[in-house]
Structures are given as structure tokens and as C-alpha cells.
Amino acid sequence: MGEYFMPRVAVLKFPGTNCEEETVYAVREISRVEAEIVWHEEFKWRMWDAVIIPGGFSYGDYGRAGLIASWSRASRELVEAADNGIPILGICNGFQVLVELGLLPGALTVNIDGVFHAKWVKVRINNPKGPWLVLAENGQIVEMPIAHGEGRYYHPEPHKIVVERPWIEYIGCNPNGSVASIAGLGSSSGEILGLMPHPERAAFDVQVPYPHTAGGKLFFESIGLSLRRGW
């Protein structure tokens, strides 16, 4: 037997990122792997087994959500990490960064009614694969809160891009006018995943008021398992 290394997850922090603490907490407590908040200037992908870009307003969302962060040095590291098959999860602003970087297709624009929405939503997980969704069943419906002003997903051919990829779909109501009700989307391998809802806010039972359920646990349990056993 070789030495056992505890897998390590980086939770990337840009100026203006604001969901890093609860995200690190969920990774430590639920994924049961090591996790650290990593300041964007200090981020080197080779040191980590997986990366999460948490929610917030990186660089104040100036220009467009995620835009300036996608120009940063850390983002060049992210592209290299992606090329090397490192699992990357982008939550909310993190999803916006992944889209701006071109690691995921399409665009995220201002909600159709121009208003910020924070509420619990139901989503369906379609075609799950990859390290973030190993425990998900196809068609599984989970609940999580959303909180965003720029979450309207757009792609000219939405039905083509979801054929191969894992994707997440709003059920019941489409809160922001996303094309094909797309709430989240993965790379074709599922190693990269971006989503607007916040799994770290629905990861523990105490974060979940009646009548909702803790739909975010799945993502953290999946990555924990994947990093220990592969995917």
C-alpha cells in the first residue's frame, strides 16, 4: 500500500466572491475531503484534485457577471486544469465565469424580468455523469435556492448541446427565462459543471425550511465519493 493522500478541493476566491465560506464548509463536512479557500492570485491548479468557483459578485460583476474574473491569471489556470481533467464546479457566479471562459457553451444574461430573484426552486437532473453527479439518478428532482440577477441561460441551439451533456432543468417555473429551462450544464464528460442554484445552501437539513428538502447534498456527496474512488 502506498501512502494515503486526502483529496484536496480548492474553493477559488476572487475579489467580490461571497459564498466561499459555506462552500468550503459543505465540502469538508459532506464530501469529507480537505478544502481550502484559495485567493485567486495564489491559485495553481496542480496543487488540487478539484476546484469550485463559488457564488458572489467577482469584481463587482462589472461589465457582465463573471467577465473580469475570466480575464484573470487564475482563469488561465482553470483552463489548464480543465484540459487535464480536473473536476471543476461553478456555482452561480462561478457558472458565469465558466461560460465567459468558454469552458461551457452559451451565455448567461440578465433575468428576463430584469429583477433579482432569491427563492427555492425544483430542478431535474438530466443525463447525469461525471464526478459531481455520480450519485444522481437520471431524471432525479431536487430542491435548492437560487439567488441571481443574471441567470438567464442562452444558447442558439439548446437542444443540440444537451444531447451529450449532463444538464439541469428548472421544473414548475422558469425563474429567469432561460432557454429550455436550463439551470445548469456540464461538459460532455461531466468533469466541468456549472449551475445557477446554490447546492451549498441546501446541503444540511438545518438550511432547509419546511416543506423543502436538502437537494444540494447530492453534489457534495458525489464529489467526495468520486475523489476517493474515481468516476
Partner: peptide
């Protein structure tokens, strides 16, 4: 619903669910 009541991941009882907010 225009306010991000959940950032921080501490909100146990958000607005519309109880008489007072409860923070974990």
C-alpha cells in the same frame, strides 16, 4: 425575493417561512 436571503448558508428560517429569521 429581491434580497439574497440565503448567502452565507446560515439562513434556517428565511422571510416568508416564520415570524423571525433564524441564523445558524
Amino acid at each position: 425575493e429581491q434580497y439574497d436571503w440565503g448567502v452565507g448558508g446560515r439562513t434556517v428560517l428565511p422571510p416568508g417561512y416564520g415570524d423571525a429569521a433564524v441564523i445558524w
